[in-house]
Design a protein around this nucleic acid. Structure first.
Lengths: 342, 342
DNA sequence: CCCGATTGCTGACACGTGTTAGCATTATTA
DNA sequence: TAATAATGCTAACACGTGTCAGCAATCGGG
């Protein structure tokens, strides 16, 4: 490993001062540099294959130009997170566009705040995108209220922090409207997670909105709760089949859960979509490869990542941000699982 | 945003020199510090909530304690990479265990080497894990030959670089043996990617090994090539069904492709596993939710990430590493798609 | 009582960069 | 011609830390 090439080396080769090298390479505005000198510096830098030392730059500017993507999930949840690649890619692309880099920082659920504190205070990163928040963390609340540059991926009612999410309630309405439009009147819902998860609660709200606005009454026994996994979807489906009469259409608020539910329904002899229709939520890559392919709400995963990073970077730059709580559009993807004309 | 707390502040509060603070907080061996002083320093640090500035540490030590995970794939490939969460988690956990952090750096396929060069020379990171290599990149070869701290996730014949992979050939053998053991004699294979991808070539080798060692001849028309996607799997299956007689068992060297192939076989009226058996490769999360669930070779995704990071960190530390080319164990996961007793 | 060893601590330099204030030199104006 | 302005460049400080060489005070032994 040869010695590092520093700006001083470039300066010597070009026959100018190190200051001049800095001015030329950073295109500092207002500094008058002759074309001749500029050329010499650039040539010297190229010849020596000079790369400025980023740690030194960070030390002196006080900015790291790194943002952290902090994922706050259990390993099991994380492993089956089909969206991470897309979200992360969105984060990265937005970051790169503003000359930022991305630190990947999953964190044990219990000490998320400590880790964020460490990253920010130690000067590891300029800001944080926090995914998978749970609203019961006081330490984290502290951090937010002290004005840490932080964007939530998701939504956290009652805490005034920047966030990026989809309109879960409206998206759920869209899904349920589709079922109603296909003349289903006996509806059931499988909520994909405990209602402490705000996304789950919102999607249930959307379901109620549409059922009620169509003059139908919400049968509470036709609402079952799952717990993220396909297995929990199977059990939830089992419960729904006890309803009398059983629902003819199911809205499951995540595809993963929907897939479990479909398996159970098939096992019990129901044909899909002839006897029972299904709409999921997320549009995970495997949704289209179900038998039958699953109608679902597409989550703009890449866009969520992109928007979160973009918003965070604006906050870091102290830009005046008009809307600190973004809601992205989602889209109903109609497939064969509810028998609509394609 | 209040002023940064520096080691000097801690020193003043504790009534000692900054040097002493450094010695205490870093537990520098050989430095005799009285218990009294040590206590005062630790208290002061705690009271001020001191976090050392990592950029300054990096500048002076010349180490960043960051490794980059460089993903060199097209966005389409990356989006459907069901393993990224697990691999990345493995990388992160191993990194954290050695007090390293992880930079996520996907990179356009065409200028991977430039980006690696930038990351290393600019002092962004101490080393790189490179995933998704293609063997036709000369620039990258240069980088490797100059001894850059780099671990390949995968295998690159003819280039002496550190790497972590599974034994693709042996894993494929395992899969095909299973089919032979179920008394199949008419075998077909769908290679999941062009043979320029070394993993694809190795898996095909494994297939040939077992077919031949069982005294069967490899019918070249019963080998079809796909291109990563399920659609390409459908087309490949279409081709295999032209064989006379058609195969009774298919080894598809990725689950994604296998799923497409199964769909096509079902469409043509074949029952699985009664009329035709399938074995995939990867054990993606959706494999178990196929109808029927797919028998496949499980890739130790987390372990690959972990091992890659661990190896890289040893290389960075100039440790004497016995084996620079690791092969991890994979495992045959038997499900219903080939009719074996469960 | 003196000398060397040990203990506990500190001063000063180095890391590589951004940036401000200012210094020659040349061009422009009165 | 002298005063002023513009041009092109540089010296010097700052960022916050790790660490080496060395200094004062205390201790132990003869």
């Amino acid at each position: 490993m040869q010695k590092r090439v520093t700006a001083t080396d470039v300066a010597e080769l070009a026959g100018v001062s190190r200051t001049t090298v800095s001015f030329v390479l950073n295109n500092v505005p207002g500094m008058r540099i002759s074309e001749e000198t500029r050329r010499k510096v650039l040539e010297a830098a190229q010849q020596l294959d000079y790369h400025p030392n980023i740690s030194a730059q960070r030390l002196v500017t006080g900015q790291t130009r790194i943002i952290a993507y902090v994922e706050r999930q259990t390993p099991e949840q994380a492993f089956s997170d089909a969206f991470l690649p897309q979200v992360l890619r969105g984060v990265h692309d937005a970051a790169t566009a503003s000359n930022y880099e991305v630190l990947f920082a999953p964190v044990p659920v219990e000490n998320g705040a400590e880790r964020c504190e460490y990253l920010l205070r130690g000067g590891h990163v300029d800001g944080i995108i926090l995914s998978g928040p749970r609203s019961d963390d006081l330490q984290l609340r502290d951090l937010l209220e002290r004005g840490a540059p932080l964007v939530l991926q998701g939504h956290w009612p009652g805490v005034a922090t920047a966030s990026v999410d989809i309109d879960n309630r409206e998206a759920a309405r869209m899904a349920v409207k589709h079922l109603i439009g296909l003349n289903h009147r006996q509806l059931g819902m499988i909520v994909h997670a405990p209602l402490a998860y705000t996304a789950a609660a919102s999607r249930l709200h959307g379901y109620r909105d549409i059922v009620e606005s169509n003059g139908l009454s919400v049968d509470e026994s036709c609402i079952a709760e799952a717990d993220f996994t396909p297995e929990s979807g199977e059990r939830a489906m089992e419960a729904l089949l006890q309803c009398d009469p059983p629902p003819t259409a199911i809205f499951a608020s995540s595809d993963t859960v929907a897939i479990g539910a479909m398996r159970e329904a098939k096992r019990m002899g129901y044909r899909i979509p002839e006897d029972m229709s299904f709409v999921g939520f997320d549009d995970i890559p495997m949704a289209v490869y179900q038998d039958p392919p699953l109608t679902t709400v597409r989550l703009p995963a890449y866009g969520l990542g992109w928007a979160a990073a973009d918003l965070l970077i604006r906050l870091i730059a102290q830009e005046e941000v008009r809307e600190r709580n973004l809601l992205l559009e989602s889209e109903l993807i109609i497939r064969a699982s509810c028998g609509a004309e394609l």
